[in-house]
């Protein structure tokens, strides 16, 4: 449900007029943090899109600017060791991609990218200063994707104003989980 529908719900209230004037901050994707290049961001997009690819009904993580999200979160919410961990992971992924005969990871076909990351997940670069590079990037991929608009509303079900709680709802085949 979008903001307009939400306001329509609220319009049943005496207070609706005031609600219409609620400040709606123009949150948008934040700029790429200093010290990171467009190609590093693109490499993270490709890693994210391999972990969570497009499937019927929902796009992959690469299409929700997952690279930007991982870099912003790493810079803003994690200790400096996390940035180092991301660099080590990117280097490791690139080394493995080159060993597989590509110039860079994004150039590999999807099936090979997946195979490469499955192998990497079995033997990930070691944790340093409390940050495990693979785990860090994968966890942020999941967070960034399932809280992005496409992830929440297409891969999952999102209802900003449920209106009520029902404690017993039969789960039918194909029903998706609630986003929140």
């Amino acid at each position: 449900m979008n903001r307009r529908t939400l306001l329509r719900h609220a319009a049943q209230l005496a207070a609706a007029a005031a609600l219409g004037s609620l400040p709606h901050r123009g949150w948008s994707a934040l700029p790429r943090p200093d010290g990171w290049s467009a190609s590093e961001e693109a490499l993270l997009d490709a890693i994210g899109d391999t972990i969570l690819p497009a499937t019927p009904g929902s796009p992959g993580a690469g299409s929700v600017a997952i690279g930007r999200f991982i870099l912003v979160m790493t810079a803003d919410c994690h200790p400096p060791a996390a940035a180092e961990a991301v660099r080590r992971l990117l280097a490791e992924v690139t080394t493995r991609a080159q060993a597989a005969g590509a110039r860079a990871f994004p150039e590999l076909p999807a099936a090979e990218r997946e195979r490469l990351l499955v192998a990497l997940e079995r033997q990930p670069p070691p944790a340093r200063d409390g940050v495990a590079p693979w785990r860090h990037v994968k966890d942020l991929t999941l967070l960034g994707y399932f809280t992005a608009e496409a992830g929440a509303t297409q891969a999952l079900r999102y209802d900003p104003v449920p209106g009520a709680y029902r404690g017993s709802v039969p789960l039918r085949p194909g029903d998706r989980a609630w986003a929140t």
């Binding site: 209802d159 209106g163 009520a164 709680y165 029902r166 404690g167 709802v169 039969p170 789960l171 929140t180």
Partner: peptide, 8 residues
């Protein structure tokens, strides 16, 4: 087979 809807 059981789920719920809304947030309580």
């Amino acid at each position: 087979d059981s789920y719920y809807s809304g947030r309580r």
